[in-house]
């Protein structure tokens, strides 16, 4: 695939370019739906399609009114505020418990390692609707259903597998003689953890945290069941908006969220490269 040889036949050339066109179309399928909503969110009308004014690129066809609606409508603002209150708390819980456990799991001798790993990863495997159903039943028994902490605990549980996976992956390349050297120089385990181990695995911890954050920030099924009207998050508001009174404000919110994902993606990519460089796993 790395370039066409000069002796390629017509058929080979046709296939070479044909294949690229096919791949181009698939990439288009992947990106176009996301790309389309960005211009549509600036629509001056309350339509979900391009108006003639928009196609002729005239300024009258475009406006910020859906964004204004998002920033002034109290329902959307309340939803945004709820999301902002829930996601960081859930992230803090998953990252602190998850990092400790990942360090424990990467020790050389862990009894029942496979079983423990299976339990810790399970929130990622079990379909969300089942987690949501179980949590709804159980949390209403113990009085957590419809409370802020109920949603936070549920989201923290959902985010933990991501923290475990990213942090254990970082710890695979961790040179254990570094902790021994630190201990040898007189540092106690806590100092060793914060001064030696933590800076080295920090990229993994942060990207695990970002995964946990986005899991909570994007989550809608569990919050629909475990939460009540007081915990209505941004995705929940979008979900009801899409199901009941579909308003173009959703597209403005979607565009903001796409921007947020691009920022997160960039951060994680930078962290991954930095972590690989720190551990000497890649030359770049």
């Amino acid at each position: 695939m790395s370039g066409l040889p000069p002796y390629a036949t017509v058929g080979q050339k046709a296939w070479y370019y044909g294949f690229r066109v096919i791949c181009g179309l698939i990439f288009f399928f992947l990106i176009a739906p996301i790309a389309v909503i960005i211009p549509l969110s600036f629509n001056a009308e309350d339509f979900f399609t391009f108006t003639p004014e928009m196609l002729s690129l005239s300024p009258e066809g475009y406006s910020m009114k859906h964004y204004e609606d998002f920033f002034t409508n109290s329902e959307w603002q309340q939803a945004l505020w709820n999301s902002v209150r829930i996601a960081p708390m859930a992230t803090i819980l998953s990252v602190s418990f998850g990092t400790l456990a990942a360090i424990g799991l990467s020790q050389p001798h862990v009894p029942f390692r496979r079983a423990i790993m299976a339990i810790l990863i399970s929130p990622m495997i079990v379909p969300l609707i089942i987690s949501a159903a179980g949590m709804y039943f159980f949390y209403s028994r113990v009085g957590l259903q419809g409370t802020y902490w109920g949603v936070v605990l549920a989201h923290a549980a959902l985010g933990i597998p991501f923290v475990i996976i990213t942090v254990t992956a970082t710890l695979v390349g961790f040179d254990r003689s570094l902790t021994r050297a630190s201990a040898n120089l007189g540092a106690d385990p806590v100092t060793t953890f914060f001064k030696v181990q933590m800076p080295l695995i920090l990229p993994g911890v942060i990207s695990g945290g970002l995964f946990a954050f986005i899991t909570s920030f994007d989550e809608v099924v569990v919050v629909l069941f475990v939460g009540s009207a007081g915990q209505k998050t941004l995705p929940w508001q979008m979900f009801t908006g899409l199901r009941e009174q579909i308003s173009p404000t959703i597209l403005a919110v979607a565009t903001i969220l796409v921007t947020l994902s691009i920022l997160l993606l960039a951060t994680i990519e930078i962290l991954r490269r930095r972590s690989e460089k720190l551990r000497g796993m890649s030359p770049g």
Partner: peptide, 24 residues
């Protein structure tokens, strides 16, 4: 030591996630 590091999370998952599934 390894188990002590894992224990808080294991307990957390057992209460917030496994118990609900068992309840279901």
């Amino acid at each position: 030591r390894a188990l002590l590091l894992i224990a808080p999370l294991l307990l957390f998952i057992l209460i917030t996630f496994i118990a609900p599934i068992a309840d279901m």
